[in-house]
């Protein structure tokens, strides 16, 4: 597998226009590789630096020291910045503040239009992107007529119409109701499966992270865990030390352990948890 995103000894703090330091270290010497076609969740509570990391990966921010490489291109090189952004799409928390146009299909066309693609090709890409997120029937609607989940799917369509090979989602479900959340998460998984997109999902919902292939836990600008969800979530004490929860099924097994019933903490979803508990009685 080739490497999509590389961070090398990345350090970052916010500065004003004159370069004066405005914040403490937001990211401290982070090194990280994300493989092409993988599904990575980044966990961390507010202020852990996870959103800043996301913005460094598509060149909205550039590192103070260290390097970020996207498909081998350095993001601090101004000449290549649009090349970087074309490859790494970004979806934000508030769907309302990412939609530019007053008609769904016009908004999805915004990205490809910026890339200077021919009108015919844009039409094809817009229709395909809307079909991929199951919003084709709404192509002539105004964004204000849609629910939060639907708007977020339009925002995702707007990114995939640019045909990126990686998509970074910064807490895309934080403002949605449970139904919208499910809908958006299913769409993201589908895009990963069907189109082989690299997905970096930043979230603070444990259940969303549990479905990823790899979980990176951040705290205070540092990576404190980087492993498969099975391994990360079976260390609830580490997670709780940095103010994070574990998925409910893991928590149940952990509490059983604490109260003297020895069960292996190996389940991160409901099915595995049920199996483990049933095994207790057989």
């Amino acid at each position: 597998m080739s490497v999509q995103l590389i961070a090398e000894n990345l350090c970052f703090y916010y500065t004003d226009e004159d370069g004066n330091r405005l914040s403490g270290d937001v990211l401290k010497n982070i090194s990280l590789k994300i493989e092409k076609g993988s599904f990575v969740a980044i966990l961390g509570h507010n202020g852990s630096g996870k959103s800043t990391l996301a913005r460094l990966f598509n060149g909205i921010l550039v590192p103070i020291s260290g390097k970020v490489l996207v498909n081998g291109i350095d993001t601090s090189d101004d000449d290549n910045i649009y090349e970087v952004r074309r490859h790494v799409g970004m979806v934000f928390q508030n769907p309302d503040n990412q939609i530019v146009a007053a008609i769904v299909e016009d908004d999805v066309a915004f990205g490809p239009e910026n890339l200077g693609i021919s009108p015919k090709e844009i039409r094809v890409r817009v229709d395909n992107a809307l079909r991929a997120v199951d919003m084709y029937d709404y192509r002539l609607h105004a964004p204000s007529q849609l629910s939060g989940g639907q708007k977020q799917k339009v925002a995702i369509a707007g990114i995939i119409a640019m045909r990126p090979d990686c998509i970074i989602l910064d807490e895309p479900t934080a403002m949605l109701d449970p139904k919208g959340r499910n809908d958006v998460i299913n769409t993201i998984h589908m895009l990963h499966r069907e189109y082989g997109l690299t997905v970096v999902l930043i979230t603070h919902y444990m259940d969303e992270a549990a479905e990823a292939e790899r979980v990176i836990v951040m705290d205070n600008g540092e990576i404190i865990m980087d492993d498969t969800p099975e391994k990360v979530f079976t260390k609830p004490e580490v997670l709780q030390a940095v103010g994070l929860d574990v998925p409910q099924s893991t928590e149940l097994l952990w509490k059983l352990n604490m109260s003297g019933i020895p069960v292996p903490i190996n389940a991160i979803n409901e099915e595995d948890c049920v199996d483990t508990v049933i095994n207790l009685f057989t």
Binding site: E113, N114, G116, I159, M162
Partner: peptide, 22 residues
């Protein structure tokens, strides 16, 4: 936020920009 989102979608004014609906 919108400005950041637009930058992420490669917006740079009308430089090299095409239109879907001619």
């Amino acid at each position: 936020e919108l400005a950041t989102a637009m930058e992420c979608r490669c917006y740079r004014g009308d430089i090299g920009r095409t239109k879907m609906k001619s």
